[in-house]
Simulated assay, not measured.
Amino acid sequence: MIVRLQAAFRAAGCDPDRLTLDEIAGIDQLHLGGRAASRSLAALGELRPGERILDVGCGTGGASRLLAAEYGCTVVGVDITAAFVSAAERLSVATGLAEQNRFLCADAARIPLAGGAFDVIWCQHALMNMSHLPAVLAEWRRLLAPGGRVLLHEVVAGDNPEPLALPVPWARTAATSHLKRREALEVSLAAAGFGPVCVHDVTETALAWRQKHGRREAGDAPARRLPGPALIFGEEFVEMGRNLAGNLAAGRVRILEGVWRRTD
């Protein structure tokens, strides 16, 4: 993946060893809403400079870098995919943020870090890939300091029981999609010791964003010169995006952003 990324940035006229957050936005904010969604969640969670954040399911590290650069936080990103972790490390070096970010390849249910080491657990579009939710949430509670917060931006199952149109960015088959209904997710968070502070349904905003970007990806708007999500997801990405928009519009999935606090 790193070789592919370097070649793509060179082809776009960029130095792959010296990149800006604007230049890499297309391949490091892979969730619905991009950087705007990350900033919305950060504002909802009232992040403060110096806070210690664990970015669960960090992918290529985009949210980790944004939180370091714009909010003055120190961030550890964790992802189970080694290629994403390697790309995240390389991109943080290229953007001059390596001292504020570090990345770890690990299962979200078994993270080899000390308990109570974080003020915030940050997670965007990752739980729907995890089949073992109680174990993941127990690990979050262990890793959070007393009074710590969970900031979550997540895809959940909608009210429409029809099967998902597949593939989507998180799953190519139904067997690898682990969507939870909002009610079940909130029950699981409460059982794990997290109380809700503020929870919003942001489906309509997410759908509008996906439709806008879908037109661009399909060629109805001028193509971006900089590398985009297809570099990460492959040739199926346009179909994935189209299916995701369809699932959102049909009510098969919805998008939540929210803050929960560890109860003690």
Rank of each mutant, 00 (worst) to 15 (best):
P134G: 14
A135Q: 05
A138Y: 10
A138N: 08
A138Q: 06
E139C: 15
E139A: 06
R141H: 14
R142P: 03
R142K: 09
L144D: 00
A145D: 05
P146F: 10
G147N: 13
R149S: 02
R149M: 06
R149V: 01
E154M: 05
E154I: 00
V155S: 05
A157C: 14
A157R: 14
G158T: 09
N160R: 06
N160Q: 12
P161V: 01
E162F: 15
L164E: 00
A165C: 15
L166M: 09
L166G: 00
L166A: 09
V168Q: 01
P169V: 10
W170I: 03
W170E: 08
R172V: 07
T173P: 02
A174T: 06
T176K: 12
T176F: 14
S177T: 02
S177R: 13
H178T: 11
L179F: 05
R182E: 07
R182N: 13
A184E: 10
A184M: 08
L185C: 09
L185M: 03
V187N: 12
S188Y: 09
L189C: 06
G193W: 03
F194I: 00
P196F: 03
P196Q: 01
V197T: 04
C198L: 05
C198H: 12
V199D: 08
V199K: 05
H200N: 13
H200I: 03
D201K: 02
D201V: 12
E204Q: 15
E204G: 11
T205K: 14
T205W: 11
A208W: 15
A208V: 07
W209G: 11
R210F: 02
Q211M: 15
Q211K: 13
G214I: 07
G219Q: 07
G219A: 07
D220N: 07
P222T: 03
P222E: 04
P222S: 11
R224S: 12
P229C: 05
P229W: 05
P229G: 04
P229H: 06
P229D: 04
F233D: 01
G234A: 09
E235Q: 09
V238R: 05
V238N: 13
G241S: 09
R242L: 14
R242C: 05
N243I: 11
L244C: 04
A245F: 03
A245M: 12
A245I: 00
G246P: 00
N247F: 04
A249W: 14
A250V: 04
A250I: 02
